[in-house]
Design a binder for these strands. Structure first.
Lengths: 266, 266
DNA sequence: CAAAACTGTGCACTTAATGCACAAATCTGT
DNA sequence: ACAGATTTGTGCATTAAGTGCACAGTTTTG
């Protein structure tokens, strides 16, 4: 990412052939060579390498290669939320430039909020590091409260059920005051949170039809109050959330196009 | 495929990293290096190459890499029928050894039968070549008749509608006699087909809940009759079809397992 | 049946992938 | 808060490994 690096050509070319095969659906080595501009024999050998990996197969009758089921091994590990992760990281970075305080992006995961991305490392106003992977409670953290506030009624019910079953104890059901507070203020908050000296405000991130996660701004309890921070930085937080949400709907829109093999008839 | 070739290592290694990333979901260069056994700096550079292609992204905050949506470009071109294609090619090859006559595997595609795989090239009893991509009619070819015969009622209705709309003329609706003939004989047939001197018998290939295509045996009209060929080779044809169908259900069964990223909590 | 196109493989060339080495940054434990 | 341990990023020399030419064999075209 830093200095644009010298890339590995053999890998690039192999991938290029895979891309091409995905477009065409079926092709001979010569066709692929023409399409990619890679020398024919090189194409041939790259195809063999791909075949050895079980990614492409060759028709026993025709000379053409095509994709095999195992190509899924290259992409099945991808999950939608990863895309959001990238976005969140970028936007959090931008926000840090305006707001000095660090912030986290977290998702609801099995009863608690799982921090997925953070700018703690880059903020001079943070003592924490290694935030990613840590968890915050659903009820007492600003992040958790934001998710609860951003959820639809049915979604919230599901979240509460999951939380109860994974925590093994009943969840506090006085959510109403929390929701009211959120609608009044426009954000959720917590004071003296996880370690007694940390406070935060947070907003939910909403996807197409569900709450994806939440983003917060973290500050020292003795340094300021939620109200003061909100006054100064809520707009930044809001536009950060908006940017992430925009990215989500954008990636959701571009429906992946499957193109079947449509050889020309004679 | 022939002599196991010298594979391209750089490509293999890059793919290995992608595989690993698909398993783990999220990893630092060092982790990937350990997991794959590839030198750390090499791993690092391969990751950069993958990143340059837009396949993986790197968290701006954390050091870990993860997959991006574009990994789908590596596999979206794959279609289920391709898997069948490979199978069909192999099985047709096997059948050719027993039955001297050439045979084709074809699928229904926009109103006609599209030949996808063939052993014409390898049969000494064929004058044709370049069969793949050619088309046979739905009503007068053994292949087409086999698909009609193998379809369920609702499926057949769909096939007929598609055919009518793409041919622009009404389809013959006297299918009943065809079906009756099929159930009586156990195969479909055509005499003096596409070019006057070619005959064939055929069987449908059925997938989980739909007709996938059909396989035929082709012979010279003056050399034999459908009845004679069926007597000699229908068993071979049947076991060929059975092998392909077995392969289809097998690949359909192995449901692809998606594994989400489940980072450990602190 | 001759010409053109394509496939498969050996081989020589030198590009380009690789891993070591080192500096810088980051994390960990006390 | 500080020192040791771990990890990251990059330059560079080495040579392994990717690449394309050449040629023989096969297939397709006209």
């Amino acid at each position: 990412m830093e200095g644009t690096y010298k890339t590995v050509r053999a890998l690039e070319r192999g991938l290029e052939i895979l891309f091409e095969l995905n477009k065409i659906g079926r092709a001979t080595p010569a066709q692929l060579s023409k399409a990619t501009g890679i020398d024919r024999t090189t194409t041939y050998r790259l195809l063999h390498t791909l075949a050895a990996q079980g990614l492409v197969g060759r028709s026993p009758a025709e000379d053409s290669f095509y994709l095999l089921r195992d190509t899924r091994r290259l992409s099945d590990g991808f999950i939608e939320t990863d895309q959001v992760l990238w976005l969140a990281g970028v936007e959090l970075g931008k926000m840090l430039l305006k707001v000095q305080w660090p912030s986290d992006y977290a998702t609801f995961d099995r009863g608690t909020m799982l921090i997925q991305e953070t700018t703690h490392r880059f903020s001079s106003l943070s003592v924490h590091r290694n935030m990613v992977g840590r968890r915050r409670t659903l009820f007492s953290s600003a992040l958790g409260r934001a998710v609860l506030a951003g959820a639809t009624d049915s979604e919230r019910e599901m979240i509460l059920q999951i939380t109860e079953s994974s925590l093994g104890r009943p969840a506090p059901r006085n959510i109403d005051s929390l929701l009211e507070d959120f609608h009044q203020r426009g954000y959720t908050w917590s004071v003296g949170g996880s370690e007694g000296h940390i406070s935060a405000i947070a907003l939910p991130i909403k996807g197409k039809d569900r709450v994806v996660g939440a983003v917060n701004i973290v500050f020292f309890r003795r340094a300021s109050t939620p109200e003061e921070i909100a006054e100064k930085h809520l707009d930044s937080l809001k536009s950060c959330v908006a940017a992430i949400e925009a990215g989500i709907t954008k990636t959701a829109e571009d429906t992946r196009s499957l193109h079947g093999p449509t050889p020309e008839s004679s």
